[in-house]
């Protein structure tokens, strides 16, 4: 008879439940919410006014967040019900999901918080964007929107602050959603929400880099503001990517030292060339260097290139975090 230590037996098993659809949901959720957050922040904290850029970016942000949400809902029994022709089941799922988010008073699940945050961000973001419709390009050509803008304007700061608060909340929620899986070291990581927020803000600044590079202001004053914002978001993104690199380092450090499952995931992720070259190099380090060169040497053409790579990296980060959602089970196999 010999003693056999069961603690040496761990089973590592990749999760197959949340895949690319949820990665898209998390990416668009973080990006869209941060687009609204940054726009409202500029208007109400930094007192910069560019109605066209802010209103359109926030409306697009709301659209992206909700479009991403479709992927989460399809991942439930909705798509399956559709394929099997059970249309009433689709309504049951939607009713249960949205009903739960509003009515049942169970505030434990992060999905529920997310549904609430997304609903509130969509509401405040849309109202805030529409309150600027009278000055925003194209929107100001539509008479009824101008009337709505005039109605909403007295409470514009309320809509703006709502957009700031719930935009940040949606971005943070995308990280917290994954944190409730105690057997998945890559997800139940205390730094994940912080990492996702930094990454979300970075992708949103990339969006503003693209906008300020390609879209010129309708008059000199707007163009001046736009250039100023463009210059600031470039430096902001350099700082954000720096922070993201630090957060990634801390993320892997904790993963390696905290638990056996984490060590396994650490080795798996860092031996995946898609993650190392695709995300760490092309999606993080190269755009950081490009942004530095663009800012210091004034080589403007590098700005959109860096921005596109940042967006690409933002998606890959979420894709790989989901992909390496590997369970650590306490039994042999």
């Amino acid at each position: 008879m010999i003693a056999l230590d069961y603690s040496q037996f761990l089973t590592f098993e990749p999760q197959h439940h949340w895949r690319i659809g949820i990665a898209i949901y998390l990416f668009l959720g973080g990006l869209g919410a941060s687009m609204g957050f940054i726009a409202a922040l500029y208007k109400h904290i930094f007192k910069k006014d560019d109605p066209s850029m802010f209103a359109w970016s926030t409306l697009l942000g709301v659209l992206l967040v909700n479009f991403g949400g479709i992927f989460l809902i399809l991942d439930m029994f909705v798509w399956e019900s559709f394929l099997h022709g059970h249309i009433t089941e689709i309504f049951k799922v939607l009713l249960a999901f949205f009903g739960a988010a509003v009515f049942n008073g169970n505030f434990h699940p992060w999905i529920q918080w997310g549904a609430n945050f997304i609903a509130l961000f969509s509401l405040f973001g849309t109202l805030w964007a529409l309150s600027q419709a009278d000055k925003a390009a194209i929107l100001n050509k539509l008479g009824f929107l101008v009337k709505i803008a005039n109605l909403l304007k007295p409470l514009q700061s309320v809509w703006g602050w709502g957009t700031i608060i719930f935009g940040l909340a949606v971005a943070a929620y995308t990280g917290f959603l994954l944190s409730v899986a105690p057997a998945i070291p890559a997800w139940s990581h205390p730094l994940l929400p912080v990492l996702f927020v930094i990454s979300a803000l970075s992708t949103a600044t990339a969006w503003y880099m693209l906008w300020t590079y390609f879209a010129k202001g309708k008059d000199e004053e707007t163009q001046k503001v736009r250039e100023h914002v463009g210059h600031q978001v470039e430096w902001a993104d350099i700082a954000l990517i720096g922070l993201e690199i630090l957060a990634i380092g801390a993320y892997f450090n904790y993963l390696y030292y905290a638990y056996a499952g984490g060590k396994y995931v650490f080795h798996q992720m860092l031996s995946d060339m898609g993650f190392v070259i695709g995300f760490l190099l092309v999606g993080l380090l190269i755009p950081w260097i490009l942004e530095f060169i663009a800012a210091k040497k004034h080589i403007r053409i590098l700005v959109p290139l860096a921005a596109i790579l940042v967006l690409f990296g933002g998606f890959l980060l979420r894709y790989y975090i989901l992909h390496y959602g590997i369970y650590t089970y306490p039994w042999p196999s």
């Binding site: 098993e13 999760q15 439940h17 949340w18 989460l72 991942d75 439930m76 029994f77 399956e80 019900s81 394929l83 099997h84 059970h86 049951k92 799922v93 249960a96 999901f97 699940p109 992060w110 999905i111 959603l177 994954l178 409730v180 899986a181 105690p182 057997a183 998945i184 997800w187 959602g325 369970y327 089970y329």
Partner: peptide, 23 residues
């Protein structure tokens, strides 16, 4: 009747005790 198949519980379970009973 209330399950919508979001699988949040499946990912949350540390003991691999849940699975999708699909159509």
């Amino acid at each position: 009747d209330l399950c919508i198949g979001c699988e949040a519980c499946v990912t949350a379970c540390p003991y691999d005790a849940r699975y999708r009973y699909d159509y």
